[in-house]
Design a binder for these strands. Structure first.
Lengths: 206, 206
DNA sequence: CGTTAGTTTAAACACTTGTTTAAACTGTGT
DNA sequence: ACACAGTTTAAACAAGTGTTTAAACTAACG
């Protein structure tokens, strides 16, 4: 495996676990078993490394999401909100083939991107991958045409918050669920739980 | 104003803005216009300062929340979920009398507590103020008895995520809403938007 | 072989972090 | 006036941060 990929793998794991601010380059290079200076040689800076970690996932995920949402938009039937949100499931779970713990890591990283780093990552993501968001908004509008643009705006952000916040602490939550309910739930189980919740939230009467 | 309170006020503002990890003691003491060593003299460590900032709010808020939720629990009628969540509104908005921008600051800090600091703040809050959570769970159960303990657990965490995530980026969101919809929304308006969403989410069919 | 571009390495850089020290200052009570 | 507890202060501490440097290594090509 190349030095570059060793760094990306180690950084991904540590960033998801402890946040971008909370992870030092020395921790990353030590886990990756490469020299400290290799990060700046291959990526230029820590900020660029963060972008590279996120891009690796987004480049894999965004075409699949665009496609799945596009099918819903172009179908002649009116979709249910459950169907719209379910379009995310398979592409998200497929990240587990792409990388070990890919689904969890990506969703945790997404959450970090919103809370760490004063929003520079949010800006990077929304400007780099606007089609995903556009298709999503269109699909939701098709499923619930009565929703005004402003209500839509707020409810999509509430949904984003639910997903991202849940996933960024999903390890702790799954531990609690295991202890308190003897129910061995995994990331797919959490996604199954959250879809009815957000679908009902978006569908709430105005 | 005492040195201790000057530190608490400055720390609160900076913590809410940039997170616990992202704020240095020198930034705090410089904004508070006190000596650097004053933090360790009055609070012992940065960790204890974080706890103190949160405790100041929780000690103000938790009796009011317990009371408001207690009323619902002890009433003979079955409450709606909208009523349960509405019980939070007045105590939360009252924080604006307690401190400038108190509502926003507190909710942002709560969000930081879940994502920064590897969960030590979550542990501190749930063990220090268990009655609030217990009363809340009881009220929700009364409004929706069919919900199993496990489903309740997940949906309450989804709700927590919605609130906390929304509020931690509420400034940016309100700006967007102002630009895109010419609608001058404030924090009370956001709360009005979010209550139907979370109520519908928790009430979703199983 | 010798050259050269690409990569890895140890060391140092300048800077920031939370914490501690010991001296100076403050006001209150004797 | 003195003493003393409480508080503030400047300075230093050790440890950790991202980044840069220049030398060493590696492999491919003429």
């Amino acid at each position: 495996m190349s030095t570059k990929n060793k760094i990306l793998d180690a950084a991904e794991k540590l960033f998801a676990d402890k946040g971008f601010n909370g992870t030092s380059l020395r921790e990353i290079t030590s886990l990756a078993e490469v020299n400290l200076a290799a990060v700046n040689y291959h990526f230029g800076s820590k900020k660029e490394l963060i972008k590279a970690v996120m891009s690796r996932y987004m480049d894999e995920l965004s075409p699949k999401l665009e496609a799945a949402l596009g099918v819903i938009c172009q179908s002649s039937d009116q979709p249910s909100l459950i169907e719209v949100f379910s379009a995310f499931v398979e592409p998200l779970l497929a990240l587990n083939n792409f990388q070990e713990h890919g689904t969890t890591n990506f969703l945790q990283l997404l959450g970090r991107g919103y809370t760490d780093s004063q929003g520079f990552l949010r800006w990077f993501l929304t400007t780099s991958y606007p089609n995903v968001i556009d298709n999503f908004v269109e699909a939701v509008h098709k499923a619930y045409p009565a929703l005004s643009a402003e209500d839509m705006f707020w409810r999509l952000h509430f949904t984003m918050g639910t997903i991202v916040f849940t996933m960024s602490s999903s390890d702790a939550l799954m531990d609690i669920a295991r202890n308190d309910f003897n129910n061995n739930v995994d990331i797919a189980g959490v996604i199954k739980q959250v879809i009815p919740y957000v679908a009902a939230g978006v569908a709430a009467p105005i």
